[in-house]
Nucleic acid binder design. Sequence first.
RNA 1: GGCCCGUUCGUCUAGGGGUUAGGACACGUCCCUUUCACGGAUGAAACACGGGUUCGAUUCCCGUACGGGCUACCA
Length: 505
Amino acid sequence: MEKRVRVRFAPSPTGGLHMGGIRTALFNYLFAKKHGGDFILRIEDTDQTRFVEGAEEYIIESLKWCGIEPNEGVGFGDGRYAPYRQSERKNLGIYKIYANKLIASGHAYYAFDTTEELEEMRKRLEAAKVVSPQYNAVSRQNMRNSLTLAEDEVKKLLEQGAKYVIRLKVPRNEEIRFNDIIRGWVTFNSAQVDDKVLLKSDGMPTYHLAHIVDDIEMEITHAVRGEEWLPSAPAHILIYRYLGLEDQIPKLAHLPLILNPDGNGKISKREARFPVFPLSWKDPRESMPYIGYKESGYYPEAFINILALLGWNPGNNEELFSVEQLSQLFSFERVHKSGAKFDPEKAKWFNQQYLRAKSDHELSHLFKPILKEKGYEKDDAFMIDFCKLVKDKVQFVYEFWDHGKYIFEAPTSYDQKVITKKWNNTCGTLFNSVLITFNSVNNWTSQNINNAFEELLKTTGKIDVQLLRVLITGVAGGPQLFDMLALMGKDEVIKRLELALKINN
RNA sequence: GGCCCGUUCGUCUAGGGGUUAGGACACGUCCCUUUCACGGAUGAAACACGGGUUCGAUUCCCGUACGGGCUACCA
């Protein structure tokens, strides 16, 4: 029988989780759902110096908002493999057990070097024009570790409680290859891999040891992570091998990165002229919060849809998918190898598609609080008509205000470009007759206004409709004119027209 | 610098030894519209370059260029 699929999203709580992280979580989620497996949230908080207050809560809230909730792990009810926080798992002693196993088999060793000594080594190697200075099979011979020190001296140091780290003993020249689900066979030489620290001097494991131990203990079947991990993958292969667990290595999938739309490189929160965080993120170390997709008016469904299509596609021309559909279609085989530039313009289009799919009723509820903030309150019937009228002009709910505010507010100025171009001395009498005509409309509906207007045209000849629009709303564009006038109400229209004629005459 | 990964319209991408190289966003033009949109139609726009392999390469191989990632007692 096939093993139950178990994948984990394993961020470190060192800051806000951005869209790249969400996409990694999403692909994990989709894969788990597709195979009826488990999606686990594990918190990799082994670096105590980089811990950021609120980051863990933020990760959990973000996943919830996106609708891609883990079914196991921190913030999601824990589970059979608890705890899911590495700082807590450390107290179980498991990392040390694995590290000691590696020491016992001769594949890891104690290193007593201080930061200064390491710095010195680096300088020395650089001076000697060594291409990549690192703690490895060659340089370790000149350092203070259990490979160079006499056995009784090592023993003495350990007994004295000297500070030490445990390092992986990487062979000098060995080919290491593995099969990545997305990239196929990838080959490295161990000469480029340094003797990675497995256990730090504070007793905490590094990522390299911790994630492997946890993946083993939690029976993870697929390790899905960003491309930035590719270079350290060979070290991870060696750790499994030296643990005698090479057959238990999860299937590896290294995702392509999400790149900046302009310029190059990974998306960065500072440079971006678009949101990079799902929710507003206030970093305790910085004064200004970063606005999120949520606050920018994006629907989570749209946000997820955009992300899903960055580096993956189902192979046909469709682009609009619900999370459920995505989890049916998803496969790593269809994930790209190359990075994808994020396009904020297309992101807006996606949101528009989701907005259009919503009913006028639903939109009216979403817009109501925004309108209230502007100081206006209208009944449901009005709100629904309003949304229907303005809907196809907007990409975000808040834009209902931008594209429809003149329905609520009389103009304080008139588009001068239109006025200068179109207003002439016949306009005063012309639009006065419009005023009289409007006044005579009894049942103030769009159709009746239109009929009356057409009737008027028979005697007056052409009347510039755009100019009429400007006289009533102040601006040259907007929703269907007569529909809008009907919604505004007869009194309001008459009032505005009278005012406009007074001012522009 | 070294190592690894990558490269189809401006962007996201489909495709894959023989195609008019398809779609979407954005952009242009036209139609609809007495206004504004939506919508419809249409246009411009790509296989990084050089060598192979082959009857034939955008597709396979090798180089080059370019881009990205990594190069910590960070993840």
